[in-house]
């Protein structure tokens, strides 16, 4: 079959049948901001950070199939303004206190905020009350940082076959729960070897006794902005466990 291509911000980008705009952009090394997408999992288009304009329509790049001649706009001031606003809403809905977070510097939410130059929260803070779950011997769950991307839900269900996590509630009351009578992670068969232990883009699922082994300032996005780590974003499939 002839090589087919679409354009992203005017650049021709080849794609194969069945690929989404996100698949094609990652393969071509073009950065489109995203949080809930992970190359190993079926895309669900929930975070909306990857919203682009394809032939003039707003679509999620991670779920929209690529098509021949499609004209995609992504890195525009208008779209980046909307993305920044979405990030600000994510930040104020949870308790994202970066200075005390063990994920700081490795966090996709934070890295995107840097990338899109989010300087302040703009909206009033919610300060929700979300107790942590430190019951598991090897893993801490800090729900304060959850952005409801469902990567842990998908990983635990589709890869680990354990369905340890789920989202419960609706609208602003939606939250991450643990599949145990007690609601505690210690009462599940969750293990640090699970795929689900290594896919959280933020700092909810934290391996204990690791803390600041890699000092602040020497972490993944301290050295380079996320837009220059497209290679890493594209090959996360195999590297999550390795890098953890």
């Amino acid at each position: 079959m002839d090589a087919r291509s679409l354009s992203i911000d005017g650049l021709p980008v080849p794609f194969d049948d069945g690929q989404t705009i996100m698949d094609a952009s990652l393969a071509a090394g073009i950065f489109i901001p995203h949080l809930c997408h992970h190359p190993q999992f079926t895309p669900q288009g929930s975070c909306k950070l990857c919203t682009v304009r394809a032939n003039g329509r707003y679509v999620s790049a991670c779920t929209m199939p690529a098509s021949e001649g499609m004209e995609v706009e992504s890195n525009t001031p208008e779209l980046n303004d909307k993305r920044r606003t979405m990030l600000q809403m994510l930040f104020v809905e949870g308790n994202h206190f970066c200075p005390s977070c063990e994920k700081s510097g490795d966090c996709l939410l934070q890295a995107l905020a840097y990338e899109l130059e989010m300087l302040g929260p703009h909206f009033p803070q919610f300060y929700p009350d979300r107790p942590v779950d430190a019951s598991h011997p090897d893993v801490l769950l800090d729900f304060n940082r959850c952005i409801l991307c469902e990567l842990c839900v998908r990983a635990s269900r589709d890869v680990d076959g354990k369905s340890v996590f789920a989202l419960s509630g609706r609208g602003i009351g939606k939250h991450l729960i643990v599949n145990a009578e007690s609601g505690r992670l210690a009462d599940t068969d969750f293990s640090l070897a699970d795929k689900a232990a290594h896919v959280c883009p933020v700092g909810v699922i934290i391996a204990k006794r690791r803390g600041f082994a890699v000092p602040i300032g020497q972490r993944r996005f301290d050295g380079e902005p996320i837009s220059r780590r497209v290679d890493w974003l594209a090959r996360r499939r195999a590297d999550d466990e390795e890098e953890q």
Partner: peptide
């Protein structure tokens, strides 16, 4: 100009908010 984490989102003192 709001300078630093505490001015911007409450920071450490705001950890008492719950």
């Amino acid at each position: 100009v709001a300078v630093g984490a505490c001015a911007i989102n409450g920071g450490l003192p705001a950890q008492r908010n719950h």
